[in-house]
Every structure is written in structure tokens, then in C-alpha cells.
Amino acid sequence: MCKILSRIKILADAEGVSIGTIERVIGASRGVISKAISKGTDIQSKWLELICERYPKYSPLWLLTGEGDMLRESAGGTTMHSESHPEEASEKNIAGCTQKFSQQDSNAILIERFITTIREQAEEIGRLKERIAQLEREKNEPMVSCQTAPRELSTSQVD
């Protein structure tokens, strides 16, 4: 199974929902993710983007690469949980805040690059699909041959 898909399964388990629920939440057709998981195939980048948008407490870096913590970190430097509040951050967390922000900045830049690359690849795939369709249309058009021209247009004289 694709490593990203295994992390989506982990995310679903952590949320206590089924893969079908995630498909509904992101607006995907039934089976888009579950079939990919069972067949070990990839899913479109748009679904990954929507998962990141709809499940913001999970780190996109972790989802895409498996690196870092599964949960995003809050501004206070603590791992984000639904019951966490920034005002509960300890002095130790505040002292490490500068380091966390620089790490978050570099992670944000890396994530933005991933998303930009995914979008560019999706656009290129769209262009390539259109070119393939165009070539297939051209292939199916009847070819006009010089051999089939009417005899009266011929300039050669027969004795």
C-alpha cells in the first residue's frame, strides 16, 4: 500500500471515522480512497489537498512524507489537541517558541513547495491528457491520399 494511503488510514483511525467518511468529507466519490488502499494505487493530489484542508489539526508534512509529528503544533509550541489551549502553554514551551517558529516556517515553506509542485503536475497532466485526446482524434480522421485523386486531375499523358 502507498505510504500516504497508510497515513490516511492512520488519520481515519485517530479521528475514529471510516475511510468512507473521509471520502464524504472531502467530496470524493465513494471508493476513491478505499479502492486505492485495497489496490495499492495512488490518489489524485486534489484529494490530498482537501484532506489537509478538512483535517487541519494533522500535519500536511506528516501526511505527505511521514516526517515530523502527526499533529500540527500550535503557536504555543505544544502539540495541538482538541482540548489544548494556547494560554495553557508552560514557560518552557514559551522559551522554545522561537525555535519552533523557525522550524514551522521551514516546514511551511516545504509544504508550500509540495503543494505548488502537486498543482503544477496536475496542470501538466491536464495538458498531456488534452494532447493525447487531440492525437487520438487526428489518428481517427480519414487520411487523404494522392493515390486516390481522380484521373482527370492527373497531368501525365498516356499514349
Rank of each mutant, 00 (worst) to 15 (best):
E120C: 04
R119K: 13
A122Y: 01
G27D: 07
N93S: 13
R7G: 13
Q147N: 07
I8F: 06
L61Y: 07
R24V: 00
S18R: 02
N107G: 05
L48N: 01
M143T: 11
G27K: 02
M70Q: 10
I94P: 00
D13H: 12
R24T: 04
G68P: 03
K46F: 01
Q103I: 10
L63I: 09
Q99A: 14
G31W: 06
G76N: 11
E67C: 02
I125Q: 13
G96W: 09
E130M: 10
I4W: 03
E120N: 09
V144T: 12
L63W: 06
A14D: 15
T98Y: 14
L135P: 00
T98I: 13
R119Y: 00
S102R: 14
A36F: 02
T117L: 06
S18A: 09
D42Y: 10
R137I: 06
A12H: 10
I33H: 00
P60F: 11
E130Q: 13
E130F: 04
Y55L: 06
K129F: 00
L110T: 15
S18G: 14
L135Y: 11
I33E: 02
M80K: 15
S45V: 11
K100L: 14
G66Y: 06
S90V: 01
M70D: 06
N93E: 15
Q121W: 02
I19G: 00
D159Q: 03
S29V: 00
E23N: 06
V158S: 06
L128Q: 14
G20C: 03
M1V: 11
G16W: 12
A14K: 15
S59A: 14
L11V: 12
G31Y: 04
K139T: 01
G126K: 14
E141T: 10
R30V: 02
E124L: 13
C146F: 06
E141R: 12
T98H: 10
I37L: 13
N140C: 02
V25W: 03
G27E: 05
T117W: 03
S29R: 07
R119P: 00
S84E: 12
S29L: 01
I37E: 05
K9M: 13
P60V: 05
T78P: 00
C146E: 09
P56L: 14
A36G: 01
G27Q: 05
H81I: 02
G66T: 10
I118F: 13
E91D: 12
A36I: 02
F101A: 13
E73Q: 11
C146Q: 03
E88Q: 08
C97G: 06
D105N: 09
A108T: 09
I43P: 04
P86F: 09
A149F: 11
I94L: 15
N107A: 13
T116Q: 08
T65E: 09
E120A: 06
N140A: 15
I132H: 05
R113N: 10
I51S: 08
S45I: 05
W62A: 05
Y55S: 07
K3H: 08
